[in-house]
Design a protein around this nucleic acid. Sequence first.
DNA 1: AACGCTCGTTCGGGTTCTCCGAACGAAACG
DNA 2: CGTTTCGTTCGGAGAACCCGAACGAGCGTT
Lengths: 256, 256
Amino acid sequence: MNTDGRETAGTIGATKTSFGIVEHIRDHDASGVSEIANDLGISKSTAHNHLKTLAELGYVVRQGDEYALGLKFLDLGDHARTRHALYHASIGEMDDLVEAVGERGQVMVEENGRGVYIYQVKSEQGLQTDSHIGTTVDLHTTSVGKSYLAFCDEERRNEILDGELTRLTTKTIDDRDALEAELATIRERGYAFNDEERITGMRAVGAPILSDDGTILGSISVSGPTTRMKGEWYHTEVPEMVTQAARVIGIRATYS
Amino acid sequence: MNTDGRETAGTIGATKTSFGIVEHIRDHDASGVSEIANDLGISKSTAHNHLKTLAELGYVVRQGDEYALGLKFLDLGDHARTRHALYHASIGEMDDLVEAVGERGQVMVEENGRGVYIYQVKSEQGLQTDSHIGTTVDLHTTSVGKSYLAFCDEERRNEILDGELTRLTTKTIDDRDALEAELATIRERGYAFNDEERITGMRAVGAPILSDDGTILGSISVSGPTTRMKGEWYHTEVPEMVTQAARVIGIRATYS
DNA sequence: AACGCTCGTTCGGGTTCTCCGAACGAAACG
DNA sequence: CGTTTCGTTCGGAGAACCCGAACGAGCGTT
């Protein structure tokens, strides 16, 4: 199985296949033994044994003649985000912010160089998007991500940005120098805009969440369609509300 | 490692240890290599290799000199509950119910013979409890669980209840016959009470969520302290609101 | 009704890969 | 500066993982 190139030595293959199966089920909502075996390039019996093990542990459940994800992952996921002080600190305040702005709001933290949404509040005029809890995004394509990049250490920023900057729309900032200039502006101003840089037709305003010692915990944003997010509202009033909320959340996060 | 008795044949040991490590980290918020090796009875190098693998996959992250759960579990957990129609159907309606009653509300589904909370709404007078998203509870000790047991097939009920009925408080119904009588009442009445059967000082009112073909999808409840949950309010008014919400959710769950 | 396809499952053997124990380097402590 | 404990690396023995083939059940088709 390690024929397709270099793999990190000293790692457990069985664990990788188990999680490969789990992710396959996640991406297909539910999967059968043969389907998994084909897609992952393993034998049916191997897939069967892994599924049997995962089912015994409660991480997958039988659903008719297929397997689906078990709710044990819900517990693990909850623990994973509970560990972030930012999660608890932002809950009430984000709801108020969303109600005031009338657009969707989200809370992001960084993990492995990508942004992860750990909390999301839908607005009254709830419009469907692809993002949900646990979604990961490229940091340079979102207002939350740029807020984070602008206020984290330079060392960490270089680690994250050393690769290619993926281009999602025509407005995505995919040039490193242009991005650094944008980040400098954000750093000076205290908040970030996103003008259709990830999804055409969508704008957002984000701000970093800073602990009192200056370290960044994550960031928040509100986002909505360009039809509503425009003019003074978008450029001045919303940023004021977002930065105000960010300040409150930052304070609450440090004293908890 | 299979010296301590009978184990199900044909299962992957490496997967079990990997998830054992994950659960250890969950229960301790963060763990180091040696601590895990000691507690799980494996060698340090084995624990190290598993952690290395899990870190590479993104399911654990380094946090100083310890390992913590990665947010990839948040994504998996979200997918696990998104699969339940009941989750989507209950979101708005539960918030309204909680606002009307003024007590905490929760949505439960059954998995592997236990109840799992997939959604929870905190009330204004938010009081702390041990339950959170992903918590599992004994079905016979909660109003949601009894609602479920009362309306699921008899076959499934026998599978679930064949073991010992754990006793959590002095009021827990731990006798099978008494429980069956209680379930019959619930079935007739359409909703369930919980009078300090799980936690002393806490009462709850629950109702099943039925699809239009009669199959049970899960159940909902509101719960609060005995100081507020009493009299006509507890015995008549709240049950009416809960059953009404359950009906609406049931309808929404079938047409989605 | 019987065929053929595909599914999930079981079984045993070969070989990979997991697991362990010991040794190393680093850091924290007294 | 010694001592302890940490995380990490390394190699070898043995176990267990992975595979392929075979079995049996469930469907849809002819």
